[in-house]
Write a protein that binds this DNA or RNA. Structure first.
Lengths: 155, 155
DNA sequence: TTCTTTTTGTTGACACATAGACAATCGACT
DNA sequence: AGTCGATTGTCTATGTGTCAACAAAAAGAA
């Protein structure tokens, strides 16, 4: 409420802890995906592509994963070199590609995904479903708070 | 529990939402700190240095901020160029520096910090202190779960 | 003391992220 | 049809992160 607070408060602590926890998840996921020589970002791309059997454009990927389109170029370059994705022609739009998973990628994901879902459950050992649903709601509310605050910022 | 789950579950949803929320906070903070031409990482370094009036070493900074020491080199290089930190000699250890804030940095932080704490409270508008304390505890528990899981991973 | 191991900071190579400028293409409008 | 603004992907520059290899210095062992 007090937009010119001079000292850190309880909410500030919660915010910091949220960032800390998220970073620890991200770091653990780096080690986890390294088992298959993947980065978390690479996995995210492959995971999104699973939902698009006919392929999707790079700009669409950039929107889904909230990253700049110039970043997608490099990510797809590296995944293409590893033969995990392919750039197919897009008959509807000659500016864009249709990015698709290769057979190798499907085989890789069949291996990774069960371990991936299992890992999420392992991390939450001792949490009831109810509790993690409540947590999700809480986090969504915070995300809305952040979005609201961001609008007050000079862009 | 079930370490070989085949499908995403409630816990998985919560984990994803945690990462999403954290990313939205980080992105908002980029816009926020941009008002003073700072990156979130640069601010974090300055903020840590406030607690060390006599300076601290780069390796100590890397441990506090959980980043590689080679990254600290570049961060301090850029902050030094902007005259926000200085590398002072360390009489106790001629390998290391004592990194200290400059007067300019103190002046900058006097401007940033109130807005910073205020922003945290603004994001949590509508949250009681009790609720954000509970959230903090929840997040700490998850962080422990992550650490536990990470230990089961091949390093 | 001397020998060995560890630690500190830098460097180079790379991955991942942004922003801005650019060419090719698309789409809408006249 | 032709024109003009928006979109798509790439390129360059830069910041932030990792890791491995290196020199200098410190710390420990003999």
């Amino acid at each position: 409420m007090n937009a010119s607070a001079i000292e850190p408060g309880t909410h500030y602590e919660a915010l910091l802890q949220l960032l800390r926890t998220s970073e620890s998840i991200w770091n653990a996921s780096r080690v986890f995906f390294d088992q298959w020589n993947l980065s978390p970002s690479q996995f995210n791309i492959l995971n999104v592509l699973r939902d698009h059997p006919d392929g999707t454009t790079q700009i669409e990927l950039s929107r889904t994963l909230i990253m700049h389109r110039s970043n997608v170029t490099g990510m797809i370059d590296r995944l293409e070199q590893r033969r995990l994705v392919a750039r197919r022609d897009n008959p509807d739009d000659r500016r864009a590609y249709r990015i698709v998973l290769t057979k190798d990628a499907h085989k890789l994901l069949d291996e990774v995904l069960p371990a991936y879902y299992g890992a999420a459950e392992a991390v939450f050992a001792g949490f009831s479903r109810k509790r993690s649903r409540e947590l999700t709601d809480e986090l969504v509310a915070i995300e809305r708070g952040v979005a609201g605050f961001a609008e007050t910022l000079p862009r």
